[in-house]
């Protein structure tokens, strides 16, 4: 009895410590978001000492955040969709089709993964500018519709799906695209869920590219809006934290939605859909 109790205590202690590591920064953000500006500089308590809920309203009204939210959602949705569709098609080709220079092309893709974003950002900007896409949704979305990481992730997953399932479908007269849509996509749901989460977080949190290609409030995204609280003459930590907490909500929602698909997908692996 005692060793088991001790074991359970130890396990809980570890779990509580782990949870604290995750929760404490959020708690601190929450506490800070409710303080006055002066308190954020003079008060270092992590427990709430004042409850200025109106900070959330002030932060929200400091800029057209409703529009920024909408823009971030449109951009993130477009990018996630692009990744799910285009990455998947490319990944399937690399996993299953035979075509000339397949290995070479795949190596080129792998090499592209190693090129840092900062190297390509100016050429990408010039290209987008030459299309007249500065300050447009197209400028925000199109250059990032496909990404190498997604192609590699999905290709690796597709390769693990038994070829027999696809051959069976073929015997039944299914076309290539039909196989992809009816067999591969349902079986690869956990991989799609993973990619969707990664892509959404990338798009939602991205700052530099949206900043470069947009000028007007009609197209600005949430992260650019938040950066306005970090002013040249000082940071409004309370509003920044209120705004940041609000901006975190969609990420958590997306994670919860796709996490269920991810878990269910894994539980059903190998079961014919």
């Amino acid at each position: 009895m005692r060793p088991r109790l001790l074991g359970r205590l130890a396990r809980h202690a570890v779990l509580i410590a782990g949870a604290a590591v995750v929760v404490v920064p959020f708690l601190w953000m929450f506490t800070t978001s409710l303080q006055t500006r002066a308190e954020t500089y003079t008060n270092d308590s992590i427990l709430p000492t004042s409850w200025h809920w109106e900070n959330y309203v002030t932060a929200w009204q400091a800029a057209p955040f409703g529009q920024y939210y909408l823009n971030s959602l449109v951009m993130a949705t477009g990018i996630v969709a692009g990744h799910l569709v285009l990455d998947a098609l490319a990944a399937y080709a690399f996993a299953r089709l035979d075509f000339p220079l397949k290995r070479a092309l795949f190596t080129v893709l792998l090499a592209a993964l190693m090129v840092p974003t900062f190297v390509t950002i100016i050429p990408a900007y010039s290209l987008v500018a030459s299309f007249g896409w500065i300050d447009s949704y197209a400028g925000l979305i199109v250059p990032r519709l496909a990404d190498v990481f997604g192609i590699i992730l999905l290709r690796q997953y597709f390769s693990t799906i038994p070829v027999e399932l696809e051959e069976a479908a073929r015997i039944d007269g299914c076309s290539r695209l039909g196989i992809f849509w009816r067999i591969v996509v349902p079986l690869a749901r956990p991989a799609f869920a993973t990619l969707a989460i990664f892509s959404f977080l990338f798009a939602w949190n991205d700052f530099l590219w949206p900043l470069l290609v947009t000028n007007s409030d009609d197209l600005r995204t949430i992260q650019i809006g938040l950066s306005a609280f970090v002013g040249r003459y000082g940071t409004s930590w309370n509003y920044l934290m209120a705004g940041t907490l609000t901006a975190t909500v969609p990420s958590i929602v997306v994670f919860m939605i796709f996490q269920r698909a991810l878990v269910r997908g894994i539980a059903m692996t190998g079961v014919k859909d």
Binding site: V74, M75, T77, G78, V80, A81, G82, L84, V85, G132, W133, D135, S136, Y137, A138, G139, I141, V142, L145, V185, P186, R189, F192, A193, A196, I257, F258, R260, A261, R264
Partner: peptide, 24 residues
């Protein structure tokens, strides 16, 4: 989730392209 995210996403791509800016 079935395929709803995929379908929604496809709609998003089309919408994103359609909204591409045109300035006179």
């Amino acid at each position: 989730m079935h395929r709803t995210p995929l379908r929604l996403a496809a709609v998003g791509v089309v919408a994103g392209l359609a909204l591409a800016g045109c300035t006179a």
